[in-house]
Design a protein around this nucleic acid. Structure first.
Lengths: 202, 202
DNA sequence: CCCCGTATGTGAACACCGATCACATGGGGG
DNA sequence: CCCCCATGTGATCGGTGTTCACATACGGGG
């Protein structure tokens, strides 16, 4: 008994338990491993129970992606808080790249339009502020601000995706730390967006 | 009879027919629609026949992706051939974006590491020269050349992916032509990589 | 020319998947 | 207290990738 959850017919928090199971499966098996039946087996419920909490497989994936945006946002917040004003863009870019490289499967899922519902209100509520905050950090304003924010996003997003799932993965060092440094160096070439500190410190 | 292919037991070119069917399915149904059974039904063979020509579903997808890289390469070649030397980078970037926007499903598949075999020799033979040609077009040399080529790739790749499968799709005009222009304008902000012509002409 | 080896295509099967539905359970508000 | 309804179950359906024994016929060696 002690510490053991009483085995009740009603789980009590099945939805969150399923999301947690799904995240585990995703992290070490990729999106293909995230199967409604596998999630059910992990939490110990019937396969059909999943659909009491998620309309379908896509809804489950959407919940996962939402959690991903929350994690990414937290990382970006921490990065900006710790950085001097003039280095906010670089800090954000670094955080974005780090997230993508260390949680690649989750990162991919967050942009897998066919697996998640991009229109989902919960997801939009979490993901849309990220671009706005980046726009602030450009230091520009007006149209240029918007353009620069999108461009900055594109640079780090492109680097991340190429590093994760393209032949570039082989053009760049395999060792995680070295790869990270190489990507940051390349990112730094995008003057003046990410060139806060002199190149030597990159 | 006239013009009709004789219905023979042996199809004769099943492999290519399957690839063609798969491409059709992909283009108007996304990757989920590319099913070995659906391909078989389209070409009119038994489901199991597919596996005489492709080891598994991934091999089929890999073949499709290879074809995609071939198409992209052709577009890039045409673009560079028609552009003045000083405008090669911009021409390449434009071609890349155009391809991604007009053949989005195929473009996505080309980078879907879990569906295609990135190590496939045929695929690598077609895809790897693309980066090399981009490196030439930077006009730089040495480490900077490599860095700039990767950065340029990242910019257009990031813009393309964000436009295709992220919330950015809603920040940017919905009309295809307007969207294209907006993305090119943003791309042009990456001085000096893509700034061949004065901004007014963008 | 025929004949057989082999590449190619078939049909039936298996395990797994997402999804649905009638039914079982039991917690919480009238 | 009791009953309603959210939650969980088990059986089931159609679809999918993949395999395997078997059928077919193309093409090269006698």
């Amino acid at each position: 008994m002690a510490g053991e959850k009483a085995k009740t017919y009603h789980h009590g928090d099945l939805r969150n338990a399923l999301l947690k199971a799904a995240l585990t499966l995703l992290r070490d098996g990729g999106q293909d491993a995230v199967t409604t039946r596998a999630c059910a087996k992990i939490v110990g419920c019937a396969p059909s129970a999943v659909f009491r909490h998620f309309a379908d497989r896509r809804a489950l994936a959407t919940g996962l992606a939402t959690e991903g945006y929350r994690l990414l946002g937290a990382r970006m917040d921490r990065a900006t808080a710790a950085a001097p004003d003039s280095g906010r863009m670089r800090a954000i870019g670094e955080a974005y790249l780090d997230f993508a490289l260390t949680d690649a499967h989750l990162f991919r899922l967050m942009f897998q339009g066919d697996l998640i519902g991009l229109d989902n209100p919960d997801l939009r509520a979490v993901s849309e502020p990220l671009l706005a905050r980046t726009a602030d950090a450009t230091g520009a304003d007006g149209d240029a601000q918007s353009d620069l924010a999108i461009l900055a996003w594109a640079v780090v997003h492109g680097l991340a995706r190429l590093a994760i799932d393209s032949q570039l993965a082989r053009q760049v060092p395999a060792d995680p730390d070295a790869r990270r440094l190489a990507l940051l160096r390349i990112m730094g070439r995008t003057a003046p967006l990410f060139q806060d500190q002199p190149a030597s410190s990159v």
